[in-house]
Design a protein around this nucleic acid. Structure first.
Lengths: 341, 341
DNA sequence: CTGAAAGCGCTAACAT
DNA sequence: ATGTTAGCGCTTTCAG
């Protein structure tokens, strides 16, 4: 496995020049059938493999795409990376992963590092909250020459390309479904303030309003995925509030385990004692028959890569904001029960 | 965000030579305090970022590590990558992920590609079964100059460095635990024939033997993670066999959902009707109180990176096989019940 | 302590 | 159709 065989070695053995050998191997320019054969023979004999780093330096593409997101452990991210890697692979790109642990400082470091690496494009689920703006000095990192596709969350005050599912609408429909079952007091559990979550809350509010129900801020509680105890605590709080909820609507899959654990501790049965509706599907949801809003993650990932590759070709940086919205759908299982209110 | 600022631009602005600028930026060689300041000032002013691709071509390291494994969706792999990326980051490396989908052909393509990319090292969970051997022509891919650390599974007939948990022993102990509870007929569900699985089966057999129980081959069924229906079917088969099992021992977390789903369909309660013991922990296990064998994945990942970096430094390829075994432990929950046999 | 120059492996413009 | 050569951005001799 000598790693040091270069195009020069191939050329020598084949008895042609570096350029010709390169043309054959790279499949560009014109070559005679005779030299083609000789070169290919030499390639095989020497087990030559082109040096992608040199290609990357010489040419304008490193055939590398970075995925920057909170944590690969998160269910949504995990599926996203899977889809992204699959599509990237198909298109001849490799994927570098960067976990930010939802820390904007780390996100910025990763971005700088990826630019140093000359990646061709970036898929990003930013750690930036809706209320935050990127500091002025770092803004250029988020809108330079290298194309970035933002998935799921968008960033305030930035020209950018976003791909996400129809959060507002799907959330509206999910809420409407609960309302139709007679639930008037629907408690929400969500991760902290990201644009995605906000849109889902918006849809929730719209459905309430349409049904003449006054929104009660106490019915929304926040917790981060990592804070398992807090998730349980907030769940308990929802159940404890005077306006006792009859349904819990979990906006992020990552919080689901914590909610279920608290429900179990309180010996609340689903759906007899409480109804449950959750965003993002996984084995657990199917097993426990939890009604779920399913986002088309596979397609989002695929589209992200294709948009990226398109932008790379057209050399268009973030000149204009674009937004692709893909449809989510609800899988109705048995975790939501009719109540008479 | 001009990407095209080079060390030359910095040098010009600072009024020194490329070499001196490089020395300051790269922190090598000697420089006077005066030029140091001038260069650093220029770096800041121009927002210079070194080109890692050029460094990679010039130097001997690309600061890149590849992780090649079945699928990031698999729970074990997912946690492994997380740990690997975290440790690699800390040590100044980035991680490229490659999913083989448990297909040896894809694995080989990935390997070739990663060598083309001049990665510094590879963490690999090979798709190679125990009964298979790597074809002669590809063997060099698995034991060349670039250090590879094999995680979890090892490959037959190859000098290699393996890191894994004590599969045999932990499985022996898990089985012994079930035996002590009175279970005589313990059904196994496992993914197909990988070295890891084999070791676990070995531990299982040893425990049976020690207790004078004759091993019944029908009590072991295989299915792949992806074949959800087959998992259910095999579970049913275990329950149906004349030698009806009183406990199911699942050797791979990825099969767990399928097993649970079948148990549910058959309205078998855990642990009243059947005991359950599973490898690898996740939220689900805690929630359903499933007794679990927990592998130290975090440490395995960390150790893999450190071994890799060590091997890179010492330039030792796979000259000798090494093996690191880390301890698993069992978390006892309530999914296993005493029976009188 | 600093600068000039070579070269990592590749591709592309220019000659032949 | 093929060879020669320059140069991508960096590091590292080698002189001075």
């Amino acid at each position: 496995m000598d790693q040091n065989i270069t195009i020069e070695d191939v050329a020598k053995l084949a008895g042609v020049s570096r350029a010709t050998a390169g043309r054959v191997v790279g499949g560009y320019g014109n070559t005679s059938e005779k030299s083609r054969e000789k070169v290919l023979q030499a390639v095989k004999e020497l087990n030559y493999r082109p040096n992608l780093v040199a290609q990357g330096l010489r040419g304008q593409s490193t055939k590398t795409i970075a995925v920057i997101l909170g944590s690969i452990k998160n269910n949504y991210c995990n599926h996203l990376i899977y889809a992204v890697e699959k599509e990237a692979q198909k298109k001849g790109y490799n994927v570098i992963i960067c976990n930010t642990h939802e820390d904007i400082r780390q996100e910025i470091r990763h971005l700088q590092n990826m630019y140093s690496r000359q990646v061709d494009g970036i898929v990003m689920m930013s750690a930036c909250r809706t209320d935050e703006e990127i500091e002025e000095q770092y803004k250029e990192l988020y809108s330079g020459e290298t194309p970035i596709v933002f998935v799921d969350r968008k960033i305030k005050g930035l020209t950018s390309c976003v791909i996400q599912s129809n959060n507002e609408l799907a959330s509206y429909e999910a809420t409407k479904y609960l309302l139709e079952l007679g639930h008037q007091r629907i408690g929400i559990l969500a991760t902290e303030d990201y644009s995605t979550v906000n849109e889902r809350i918006k849809g929730y509010k719209r459905a309430l309003e349409e049904n003449g129900i006054v929104f009660n801020p106490k019915n929304i509680q926040f917790a981060a995925q990592s804070e398992k105890n807090k998730v349980a605590e907030m769940t308990a709080k929802l159940l404890r509030e005077k306006s006792q909820v009859t349904a819990i609507y979990v906006l992020n899959n990552s919080l689901c385990a914590g909610v279920l654990s608290e429900l179990k501790r309180q010996k609340k049965n689903i759906p007899e004692d409480i109804s449950l509706l959750v965003w993002d599907d996984e084995d657990l949801n199917e097993l426990l028959e939890i009604t779920t809003v399913v986002q088309p993650i596979e397609e989002i990932g695929k589209m992200a890569i294709n948009k990226l590759i398109h932008d790379m070709r057209t050399k268009k940086g973030a000149e204009e904001s674009t937004k692709e919205i893909l449809d989510s759908h609800i899988i109705y299982r048995s975790s939501c029960k009719k109540v008479n209110s």
